[in-house]
Design a binder for these strands. Structure first.
Lengths: 235, 235
DNA sequence: GAGTGGTCTAGACCACGTC
DNA sequence: ACGTGGTCTAGACCACTCG
């Protein structure tokens, strides 16, 4: 770290103070980069780098071309609890919403086929959904279901919990799951939905679900805004 | 995303190709930012932003003021397996090393006291270690032990597995643990050890360990280089 | 001492969101 | 139409690493 001047130390400290002192509230907009650069007499690039680093800390987040905002507290996500999304959010006194983005039916591409232990050319449904916490889009989810296990599922309301739908309509209970958590870059379709830049850091979670007969029934790719979540495991 | 020119698309694609095509090997140095800026006829700032974004993907990493390097494959880390670090790395055909950075004895600060369910002013030992995979420093670990549970531990070799030391010297087995995984910014002392910039993204793991009598025995803070690891859970 | 990345200035134009 | 962030140029000096 440059000990000498560090132009951005000032602005970082001020914003941190304002946020921890509740002068800037969660979801509230931060003054524009140009305003900040005038206020602190530094270039926009320096402002940007200061904001970037507060973003890494998880204190603020950006909406592509809309501005910078203060991050709400992280949601605690326990992947071993069988709790579904809306329940989990409600338990933490927050509000959840799920929006169906679209459904595609296709032959399983090789990555998916491997994950699901299928021979290739097996038909699958891909359900894309966007999830909100307190009105903010924080999670893009892609579910890949083996079509023949879920006849007629496309006529159902797919904005509800799939776990519950699996249980009520098909008698499948998710018995166990395999998870992988990888901090990586957002692919384009994900970035678009979450309103971030392609290539920005997200937390990717790949998950393969097994039913009570120990058959693989689906896999899921979750992409979380990094500042929105922490993984919490109690065992 | 800028559809128009996107000066950095070229360089990103080229580097990605060279890495996936094994022309650039893991741990190998990438040409300097100035060289790249000349090669691709773009400014150093543009080079930097392209490298930043490959870093987010986990393809490359930086050593502060030393340069950019190609990331080796991620280690799979299963926090539920009782496997210790060296074992885990060996199982994945990689080589591990642990270096003791220092030990401090102090009164538990309030954050630690809360985690360990202690009244304040309880003495603890803080053991700081740095862990290497294939010669690269990827993990900074801080263990906070309740002193009176571990008499005389400071006279032991603390570069070995603490889990094993707990078992052999004190008869403690780690029975269960609570984990939290948080992508966040590296604090200064961590950044220094890992040879990254203060404020750069790391994966922080907080862990509280219980022994066979269900007593809390220690807590641990791990800071991983983001590109070095993925969390993998099978249950 | 030469080379590296880290940081900074002082501008510019573009794509997109919002009104 | 205007304001936002996204990207870019063309330099500069500094702090640090390495041989």
């Amino acid at each position: 770290m440059g000990v000498a001047k560090d132009v951005s130390k000032d602005i970082k400290a001020v914003l941190r103070d304002q946020i921890s002192g509740k002068l800037l509230l969660p979801l509230q907009k931060i003054p524009s980069e140009r305003e900040l650069s005038e206020l602190f007499s530094i270039t926009r690039i320096s402002v940007k780098s200061a904001l970037d680093s507060l973003e890494v800390e998880g204190l603020i987040y950006r909406e592509d071309r809309r501005g910078w905002f203060v991050s709400p507290p992280r949601i605690k996500y326990n992947p071993l609890s069988r709790c579904h999304f809306h329940q989990m959010i409600r338990d933490q006194q927050r509000t959840a919403k799920t929006q169906l983005l679209g459904v595609k039916s296709m032959m399983a591409p090789s990555i998916i086929a491997t994950l699901l232990a299928l021979s290739e050319l097996t038909p699958i449904h891909v359900i894309e959904r966007l999830r909100y916490i307190d009105g903010r889009a924080v999670l893009f989810v892609e579910n890949c279901l083996i079509s023949h296990c879920f006849p007629d599922i496309l006529s159902e309301d797919l904005a509800q919990s799939l776990t519950i739908l699996y249980a009520t309509k098909y008698g499948f209970k998710t018995n166990r799951s395999n998870f992988e958590f990888i901090p990586t870059a957002a692919p384009e379709h994900v970035a678009q939905a979450l309103n971030i830049r392609t290539g920005q850091q997200v937390l990717k979670i790949c998950r393969v679900n097994y039913n009570q007969h120990n058959d693989i029934i689906d896999c899921e790719f979750e992409y979380w805004r990094t500042d929105a979540v922490m993984i919490s495991i109690n065992n």
